[in-house]
Computed example of a mutant assay.
Amino acid sequence: MAQDYYELLGVSRDAGPDDIKKAYRRLARQLHPDVNDAPDASDRFKEVTTAYEVLSDPQKRSVYDRGGNPLGGAGHGFGQGFSFDDIMDAFFGQATGGRGRGPRSRTQRGQDALLRLTIDLAEAAFGVTHELKVDTAVVCSTCQGSGAHAGSQPVTCGTCHGNGDVQHVQRSLLGDIRTSRPCPACQGYGTIIPDPCPECGGDGRVRSRRSISVTIPAGVDQGTRIQLSGEGEVGPGGGPPGDLYVEIDVNRHAVYARKGDQLLCQVTLPMTAAALGTHLDLPTLESDLPDHEGPDTVDVEVPPATQSGDVITVRGQGVPRLRGAGRGDLRVQVVVETPHHLDDEQRELLHQLAELRDEQRPEARLGSSHKSVFGRIRDALR
């Protein structure tokens, strides 16, 4: 025997199938003509491929170990035809097409589904339960997912004989190369449904509208997605369903805006109230809920000498935290309003005030070191 296949692959004579396959993968990556331009690379690649063809086949290996011709007189190289899938397996660890050889199952997992739900700010903050109408694929009740008409069943494909793949042989410089492709007659399933279910047409599922209950946890925000496992599309062949994702869209509120777990609002006060200080009763966000129990307003103390743009913080009156305990804060921005119309008495009183404060002709601050209104608002929100 001119060549020692064990020596070509660099394995011992008692090497197991995994060791032989691992050795071939290593050499095939090194010697394949597409990656190795050495003059003898092609011949050496043929030699190690022939060695692998023999040693990976228990019957051929037994003949070879007894000193016989394992290739049956077919010569060296690729012998009676070496599968291109084996070459791809050596390089990438899998057969061509990205899946294992053999028929694929008709039963597959269904796709995930996405549904958008619009809720109010108070519902997003404190949680709510909604009934949703969902239009998805469900298991066909007529055939129970089999896809076959009652009393019938799938039969073995006559083209691929149940393998799911068909072989194509192509001549090349390296010899006969076989490639496997999904059978065009059965689409790779290995079986054909001769009498499909009249309800689902052989798919094993139909479209249906159903109602489900979804609980929105407290603290969700715009764009939050709620995952409902197993509530998505049923798969082909009555396969397990995917998941349903409910994406939250929050309506704008008439009074409050939201930033994280904080509630923001703006109030306009007359100049006198801002100067002297006052108390405000603001509606609580939870008062929007129909089953709300508790106070409907929150007291906000405006201290004397409040300036336009100042922000007053009320602790624990914001939005409940989605992942964590407690609530954020309520931030109230004050806008001081200068009176538009003054009668004679009011004008005289303001003149007297200006005189008492020596402000008849005040000097304007240019480039004051004091922060602007926008700067104070920005710092307060931080």
Rank of each mutant, 00 (worst) to 15 (best):
D4I: 03
V11S: 06
D14Y: 06
P17I: 10
D18R: 10
A28N: 11
H32I: 15
N36V: 06
P39V: 13
R44T: 08
S56I: 05
Q59G: 10
R61C: 07
G67E: 10
N69G: 07
A74Q: 08
H76P: 12
G79P: 03
Q80S: 14
D89A: 06
F91M: 14
T96D: 06
G97K: 03
R101T: 15
P103Y: 11
R104G: 05
Q108M: 13
L114V: 15
L115Q: 12
I119P: 01
H130G: 00
K133P: 01
S141I: 10
A150T: 07
A150K: 13
T159R: 05
C160R: 07
G162V: 09
G164Q: 04
L173W: 02
G175I: 07
C183V: 05
D195N: 15
P196M: 05
C197I: 02
G201T: 08
G202W: 08
D203F: 11
R210P: 02
S211L: 13
I212M: 07
G219K: 06
G219Q: 06
Q222P: 00
G223K: 00
R225L: 04
G232I: 12
G238I: 08
P241G: 04
I248K: 04
V250K: 01
H253D: 14
A254E: 10
A254F: 07
V255Q: 11
V255K: 12
R258T: 01
R258K: 09
L263A: 01
L276M: 11
L276E: 14
T278R: 06
E293A: 15
D296K: 10
T297E: 13
S308Y: 09
G309N: 10
G318D: 09
R321S: 08
A325Q: 13
G326E: 01
T338N: 07
D344P: 00
R361L: 09
R361I: 04
G367W: 03
K371H: 11
G375D: 13
G375Y: 10
R376T: 06
D379R: 12
